[in-house]
Simulated assay, not measured.
Amino acid sequence: MDKGPTKKTDLQTAYNTDTAGNATDPKYYNASEERKQKYDDALKAAKDVLGNENATQKQVDDAKKALEAAKSKLDGKTTDKDALQKDVDDSSITKTNDKYYNASQDKKQAYDEALAQATKLLNDKNASQKAVDEAVANLTKAKTELNGEPNFIGGDYTPSEPSTPSTETPAEKTTEKILMHASYLYDNKGIKIDKPTVKSYVTAVVAETPVTINGIKYYKVAGKDEYIKAGNIDGTLRVITHNSYIYNNKGKATRNKGIKRLVKKTRIVRTYGAPINIKGHMMYRIAKNRYIKARNFEGTLRRLSHNSFVYDENGKATRNKGIRRLLKKSRIVRTFDAPVKINGHMMYRVDNGYVKVKNFK
């Protein structure tokens, strides 16, 4: 009796569905190697039966059952990316550390490449657990191999405490701080010392507790009678009065996925040090190579009672195309912070330099 042609439709459908879905199904790509192998073997057997013109109906039905059974035992779970996300988030801190920015080029490049791969996997919704775990391991390894040495200023730094009590004057408690803004050194009266400026991002060893000199907060350099303004280290919290773009040190607006980064009005932002001139605009540093225009922060509006030249932080008149900058009498100017003494004159900082206090009403 003729049993008719072998029916392969159901097996073909199961085979097509499974081969198409494996790449996006964590049950498959995160399964144990043993169960994945058994499933792959069943899938191959199904393909062989589908290609066999002489296959019996029993062979087709058995191949379909074997494929379904192997599929039901796949034990993969959704990929866990929490550890990878944390490492990528921490990279913003790592990149401001001297171990990174003072590292040799090959070590820094290895870290950057591992970070790029980690970021790529975070954005890949079909990334396997194995690939994610390898990315975590690679990024951790690259981070531990960063070989940058700290640029210390200050005396010998020994973080350990003496093991036995001492009757001598206790050593000052010190800590490490990263300078977020180039800094002058001052003496214990707040007078600038004739020494080179300490560069940005240098690690300074300073006394734990800041001191106040002439109303300004300073950190004492460990083992020396030298002081650094705390605002260059801890920063100052300021309120944004206008929506503000974030710029780099070339004066170009920074972008995220092609969109300019914007800080909204009323947000509180931490700034570091005095503003600096970038492409004709006075800007505050808010992070490494990130700046916001000084005029977008709160200040105090004051009216000039005299025509007033504008000076830089060294007391030299600023110029535009060779002509000294002049603010006209009666003009209302926004000033920032308490006045400071520059070359014997008390001055208010304005959004493009400094103006003598005596020129205001």
Rank of each mutant, 00 (worst) to 15 (best):
E172P: 00
V333S: 05
N214H: 02
L43I: 08
K7R: 13
V239K: 15
V269K: 05
A137Y: 07
S160N: 07
T96M: 07
A135C: 08
K361D: 14
K7L: 11
N123L: 14
D337C: 02
Q129K: 03
G231P: 05
I246V: 15
G190N: 04
V350P: 04
T174H: 00
Y101D: 01
I332A: 08
I268F: 12
I246F: 00
G215I: 02
H345V: 14
K288Q: 15
S330R: 10
K358A: 11
T119A: 15
N289R: 01
V206Y: 05
N314P: 10
G273E: 03
S308Y: 04
E313V: 13
D112M: 10
Y219D: 01
I323L: 06
R295T: 11
K361C: 03
S32F: 02
R302D: 06
K257G: 07
E145I: 09
R290A: 14
A45G: 03
T119N: 08
A135P: 01
V132A: 10
K95T: 15
Y227D: 03
A42K: 01
T241N: 09
G76Y: 06
F309H: 12
A135V: 08
N123K: 15
M180Y: 12
Y39A: 07
I276E: 12
L74H: 08
T241M: 11
Y184L: 12
P26A: 04
P275R: 01
N188S: 13
V340D: 01
K264H: 11
K120S: 15
R334D: 01
N22R: 11
L74C: 01
T266R: 13
S244I: 05
L139G: 05
G223W: 01
G353T: 04
K189I: 10
V211Y: 03
V49Y: 00
